[in-house]
Design a protein around this nucleic acid. Structure first.
Lengths: 219, 219
DNA sequence: CGCTATATGTCGCTC
DNA sequence: GAGCGACGTATAGCG
């Protein structure tokens, strides 16, 4: 990783055209060839950048970064204030906990969370407009489509509504009931869901994980 | 802006829980108090971060960054390999030249792109739930609502559907037809749109701009 | 490689 | 502060 502090001007031409007037900034050149330009505010977002794969051509006073799509980032350097290089190696990577995938996994493993006698048919059940998170059958054998979200907001209800509309036209599945399962459901989302006959289920992630470890202890 | 290269371990507890094992990384501390942790790849996204407003408490070997929502980032530092500070001042900021607004503008100027005899009623036609990008009338005088997007995805169809539902309740407008206009329309979005009776129109931005310059030459 | 859903999305605007 | 839409969204996962 190379760290350069320099007075520079930046011109991006690609999906849009953007220009940064001459000023001191951080230029970050990473081992994968990517380049980003940071100002002294905002943690997350660089002012400008080029994602890998891309190639940096360095000439005195002008850096040009290009990618396959012929987007370009031209960095005109007026004065270099700092320039160091550091070997970091490959990062072991981030371990996340509490994301949607894990929640879906837990619910798939414990379909009775949705009710007595519920069984799992499929995770990621494919439809023409995308995959339904969980397809279950209730005790009576009726199809139940489940949309899983960490935070239940209105767009998740829309998503499930689309799936239900489509699935209910399939005579092999219909009638299909809908359940919106999330760790937290916003009032607006709940109102819309219930108005459409979709059941809302607030899932206690820690309790579910607890069940999991209880199972592990039992067997 | 402070640049620190250090062997560190990071633990984030907040909207989710995340952990980074001990490894050398870049710690970026900005003037606004924000902190981000970068590996030697990916230009855009830090491995972990805390956005401003937030506060860094530095103790020997342990940095703790906290925000109002009581999210926390704990950085355990094993070894500091580099530590420099640089005054950058306030950035003059980015100048963008967008595409999206221009596309709407071009279509408004050339309503016959949608069909023979089409005329523009209004751009940004206000409804109770937001502005419709374009309101047109076809050759027969029937209302046509247009949603313009650079890339046509499914949420644009939902948006247009909501507008159409509302507008079709207005006796002065109804019946209102819908057109989804974009430079590119994803198959999923097309399927949903056509299923709802919404016409999809793929717009050639360059051709349209070409028409524009032809017009300019003619007059 | 292309497509789709997710994101600690972030950012900027309106209400 | 919440809600909504755009973003050069980026990025991961799967066919």
């Amino acid at each position: 990783m190379r760290l350069v502090i320099a007075r520079c001007q930046v011109d991006y031409v690609g999906r849009l055209t953007a220009h940064l007037p001459m000023a001191p900034r951080l230029l970050l050149v990473k081992a994968d060839g990517s380049v980003s330009i940071h100002a002294d505010d905002r943690a997350y977002k660089p002012l400008n950048w080029m994602s890998p794969p891309c190639w940096l051509e360095e000439q005195p006073g002008v850096w040009t970064v290009r990618n396959k799509a012929d987007e370009s980032l031209v960095i005109t350097i007026d004065e270099v204030l700092h320039d160091t290089k550091h070997e970091l190696g490959v990062d072991p990577g981030l371990v996340k906990d509490g994301v949607e995938a894990h929640l879906q996994e837990l619910l798939a493993a414990h379909p009775t969370t949705f009710g007595e006698g519920y069984t799992l048919v499929r995770r990621e059940y494919m439809t023409a407009i995308g995959p339904v998170d969980l397809l279950l059958r209730d005790a009576a054998g009726k199809s139940v489509a489940v949309e899983v979200k960490r935070r239940g907001e209105i767009d998740g209800v829309e998503q499930l509504t689309r799936y239900l509309e489509l699935m209910n036209r399939d005579p092999l599945l219909a009638p299909v009931a809908g359940v919106y399962a999330a760790q937290q459901i916003k009032p607006q989302a709940r109102t819309l869901a219930e108005d459409r006959g979709i059941r809302c289920l607030v899932v206690d992630y820690d309790a579910l994980r607890g069940t999991e470890s209880t199972d592990l202890r039992l067997f």
